[in-house]
């Protein structure tokens, strides 16, 4: 090996040893993007007046099961006003605890009730549970799901990864059946609209 290359190797390796000091940083923006979507959907969906207690009562965003947003969603809705209404976040660990909200986010995972449960294989919702939930709805609720096949099951909006972006599938048929008034501009952005 030529001496000058050995020098390069040594210099390069030396740089390498400096590297770990700089380690920080978040990897993915996936969760913030989804949170921003949730707030944004409120602009394009109209609920009947009966869905609100009065003219100033907030738009409630519910999170069912595991909450992957944490304080991020709370920060995001600070001082946010859509259609003269503020936002409120409610968290429902289980289906039994579910209360009325305007937008319900259903993550991929249920909360593992048993703390000894295997975190490697989180418990997933099954389609029967979701169907059952939708049948029980009395007031119009926008259901947003974060797992494959949610829109197929009848959910209104399903997040989906498309390359390096997050897009969504909109099930217009079931959203209308649920009594939601959908503005057409949301359909233009949807990756896919089911009618």
């Amino acid at each position: 090996m030529k001496p000058y290359l050995i020098k390069i190797f040594i210099i390069l390796m030396w740089i390498g040893t400096l590297f770990p000091r700089g380690v920080e940083a978040q990897a993915s923006r996936e969760i913030p993007i989804k949170a921003a979507y949730l707030v944004n959907f409120a602009k394009y969906i109209d609920w009947p007046d009966s869905a609100f207690a009065d003219a100033t009562s907030p738009i409630i965003i519910g999170i069912l099961g595991t909450d992957s947003f944490g304080v991020l969603l709370d920060k995001l809705i600070e001082n946010k006003v859509v259609k003269d209404r503020e936002f409120l976040i409610k968290r429902f660990p289980t289906l039994d605890a579910l209360d009325y909200c305007h937008i319900l986010f259903i993550g991929e995972e249920k909360i593992a009730m048993d703390s000894s449960a295997n975190t490697q294989n989180p418990i997933r919702w099954d389609s029967a549970e979701i169907k059952n939930l939708m049948e029980k709805l009395e007031k119009p609720m926008l259901l947003v799901g974060d797992f494959n096949g949610f829109a197929e099951m009848g959910g209104h909006i399903e997040f989906k990864k498309s390359g390096n972006n997050i897009k969504f599938i909109f099930n217009l048929k079931t959203a209308r059946q649920a009594g939601l008034d959908v503005r057409s501009s949301i359909l233009r952005v949807a990756a896919e609209v089911k009618e």
Binding site: A36, L76, N165
Partner: peptide, 24 residues
Amino acid sequence: EIDLEKLADMSLEELAKVEIWVTT
């Protein structure tokens, strides 16, 4: 926080174009 502020003010069209991994 800067990032989040910006996301919160984006339209749906803009959100659909945000790159998940652009930060890394």
